[in-house]
């Protein structure tokens, strides 16, 4: 959405706001500029105490871009209330099946263009933590605690990252938006649709039951890897291969559970064979793969067959062997 379109969609009465601001300036002639703007914002009921607003204004003041003023920033704070109001009306329509859909859809519809728009108010190298904090201040004031700005930002350090690659800032705006707004959207969704939340939690209980009865190794990643190789004839990246094998093994073998090799041997060979076969297009032929795999696993079986190990330990031991099998398999294609 272009800047003008955006301003039209979420229109604020600039003239009335300016009149109000001038009135407050006249009333508090002896106060400093930041304090007057803070009082103006209190007058607009943006939901913070005077000291908190002063703290926020003083923090963002030095990072506002040259062609914008602190008053512009204050007006945007008021506009944010308008956006929040419109967004809440929309989410109230209740067409979302779960909070995650509501998060993605409302971020796309309401905040993606807003992100582009609001970043223009700040210097180019503003950090993602500062932008994320701004979203929380503008749209989720109840969640912003009463500590000062520096503490508040420190708290976000683990969640939000500014990534620099070859001296260029990598665009991670969607993740910043999600971090800054997800909790608000989720909370609004849960408050507005309590019946859907209850249904969802019952479904999740059922899902957990299903998960506890996993009966096979899931080789979807391996299958996809082979398929992509057969079609594109591109060299397989080692990291991709390792990830696929880890995913295959960890789909069955779980950390914290003890297994004997004989508990899963047959399944491992059968599921690995199936996954590799199903990755092949019709014109490829490969016979007796299962025999080949069990031959390779013989040595491994000799040393470890009577041991009882944790799922994670089995994954670590089996990973290089399966990697070797898959590489040999790919070489024959």
């Amino acid at each position: 959405m272009e800047k003008v379109k955006f301003k039209q969609a979420f229109k604020i009465d600039d003239k009335r706001l300016l009149w109000n601001y001038n009135r407050i300036t006249r009333m508090f002639k002896n106060s400093d500029h930041v304090e007057i703007i803070a009082k103006f914002l209190i007058n607009q009921s943006i939901g913070f105490s005077l000291n908190r607003i002063l703290d926020i204004l003083n923090y963002y003041k030095p990072i506002i871009s040259k062609n914008k003023t602190l008053l512009d920033f204050a007006f945007e704070w008021v506009r944010a209330n308008k956006i929040r109001f419109e967004y809440k009306k929309f989410i109230n329509l209740g067409t979302y099946e779960d909070p995650n859909s509501a998060i993605d859809d409302t971020i796309f519809l309401f905040f993606l263009d807003y992100d582009k728009y609001i970043r223009e108010f700040f210097i180019k190298n503003i950090s993602e933590i500062e932008i994320c904090a701004l979203y929380e201040i503008f749209f989720n004031p109840n969640q912003v605690d009463s500590t000062n700005m520096n503490f508040f930002l420190k708290k976000n350090e683990l969640r939000v990252h500014t990534i620099i690659k070859e001296n260029e800032k990598v665009d991670t705006n969607i993740f910043t938006l999600r971090e800054g707004l997800s909790s608000m959207i989720k909370k609004d969704y849960n408050e507005l649709h309590p019946s859907k939340v209850q249904i969802k939690s019952e479904q999740q209980k059922n899902d957990i039951k299903v998960l506890s009865t996993i009966t096979k190794f899931d080789g979807t990643m391996l299958e996809r890897l082979i398929k992509s190789y057969c079609f594109n004839k591109q060299k397989i990246v080692e990291k991709e291969l390792e990830n696929s094998i880890s995913s295959f093994l960890s789909s069955f073998l779980k950390f914290g559970q003890i297994y004997k090799y004989k508990d899963f041997k047959e399944k491992l060979i059968r599921n690995l064979t199936d996954s590799l076969y199903s990755g092949l297009p019709e014109n490829y032929k490969f016979d007796s793969l299962d025999i080949l795999i069990s031959d390779i696993l013989v040595n491994f079986e000799r040393t470890l067959k009577n041991q009882k190990l944790d799922g994670l330990a089995w994954i670590k031991d089996l990973n290089p062997i399966l990697k070797d099998i898959v590489i040999k398999f790919i070489d024959t294609l």
Partner: peptide, 14 residues
């Protein structure tokens, strides 16, 4: 284009 694809690309870096 603007959301799903970008979030896959950005997510990798993050």
């Amino acid at each position: 284009n603007k959301y799903v694809h970008q979030s896959i690309i950005q997510g990798k870096y993050v």
